[in-house]
Write a protein that binds this DNA or RNA. Structure first.
Lengths: 234, 234
DNA sequence: AATTCTTATAGTCATCATGACTACAAGTAT
DNA sequence: ATACTTGTAGTCATGATGACTATAAGAATT
């Protein structure tokens, strides 16, 4: 650190504030995370969580939204702050605090735009990710843990699945987030009793086996459950 | 704000970083929060959450511990970060980000030491608190919400109750945190089945009715449950 | 000394959710 | 025609839950 250390109890300037975000998606029955390859800076050419700097006059949430919009072009997504990560040595040579966020998206809804701050962007299966720079591994595992918890009291499938989905897709979403195996008939029974999802009266197309029924979320029940909270224990 | 607003995407200095902490305690069958009256500064003579400044070379958690130790003299307590509160206008004239924490304590274990940064310190029933300065009301309600959630998957009674306690005390703890009424026999049955608490083979003293048995937490089971997570739904 | 009050603690009972299954349906692939 | 895959319906024993009743053990009041 380049600064003296004045007595505690006195306001002190912090060099910079950044945002780092774990963006979750669900593709091919797997929980995915979006990583970017930085175009410049200290970790040029390494895969890392997408992030950026918070402007002096910018609300933290606004900064996070801005970064995500730059990267994905999507404005509508679930975004929530995790916490501040403030290890003293986490950033070389300066005191930089980063605010961790996580987001839930539907990858099929848009194209990635790596252009601006990143040279490349790609979805990774969460299990294949290792050795991220800075404290990004810590942020990622914190994100996943938060998601594991969130999934039990909020119907977050809404933010990760396509508009219309099968019960198996929903089940696999839970399975991949929670890293567990579920019984199919029991899962059906449980999920259907919540009245959260509604039949589209449509069948799956182009599968080489019996086509499953398609369902969509009931927005009203969804909002009600989100507000009241609910428990979804497996 | 006194600064220009440079283009986003460039690191920018933040004036200061502070800590604000909701300290929970449990007294007289009520959930309490410790507030301090500030001795100086912008909010002199107003009750507010205890807080202070983070030093340039100080880890966030260390800063929070330091503040709590100065105030309560206690080193052993449960402390967890909530999140960063970064509203642009939350602090007059400067850009100050505050990191919210919450702590769980046993009020009977120590004396408050308001001396250093605060002129006074006192426990308030959580329901009587209103109109806190800055965004402290938001931090407080966020803390409570976190506690409500935490209580369902971690045996946090350990950190709030005295060493030896009765089942009714434990029940009232849950009731006051969750703002619900519980059935006594059913609560007993449920809690006893978890094997989390163990009889001290001692009776309550000095009560004007049938004395209840005293219990203590089983540290081993407690640690196991804390690690594995558990669900405590009412 | 008897009664009343308060809280502790034991136990009952119907209902419901759950986990572990079996069975069969509806398609595609061979 | 039959094998294979996935979808969907239903059974059944077990255990948890919520709503109770009943009784115990004191202290306080009359």
């Amino acid at each position: 650190m380049s600064k003296e250390n004045p007595p505690a109890g006195v306001p002190q300037t912090i060099d910079s504030l950044s945002i780092d975000c774990t963006i979750f998606g669900f593709q091919e029955s797997n929980l995915k995370v979006l990583l970017v390859k930085h175009a410049e800076g200290i970790i040029k050419d390494r895969w890392a969580l997408p992030g950026g700097w918070v402007a002096y006059n910018e609300h933290l949430d606004d900064a996070a939204y801005r970064l995500l919009k730059d990267l994905t072009g999507v404005k509508e997504l679930f975004l929530e702050q995790l916490k501040a990560f403030g290890e003293v040595g986490r950033y070389p040579g300066k005191r930089v605090i980063t605010i961790g966020y996580y987001a839930l998206t539907r990858p099929e809804n848009y194209q990635l735009i790596p252009g601006f701050t990143a040279s490349d962007a790609r979805w990774f299966s969460i299990n294949e990710i290792k050795d991220l720079p800075y404290d990004h591994s810590e942020i990622l595992s914190f994100s996943w843990q938060r998601l594991k918890r969130k999934v039990k009291y909020a119907p977050i499938g809404f933010n990760l699945l396509p508009e219309k989905f099968t019960l198996l897709q929903l089940q696999e979403l839970y399975e991949s987030i929670l890293e567990i195996k579920l019984d199919k008939p029991n899962f059906r029974r449980k999920i259907m009793k919540m009245d959260l999802i509604v039949s589209c009266h449509q069948k799956q197309q182009g599968v080489s086996h019996r086509a499953a029924n398609l369902y969509h979320f009931d927005k009203k029940v969804y909002d009600q459950l989100t507000e009241d909270g609910f428990i979804f224990e497996f």
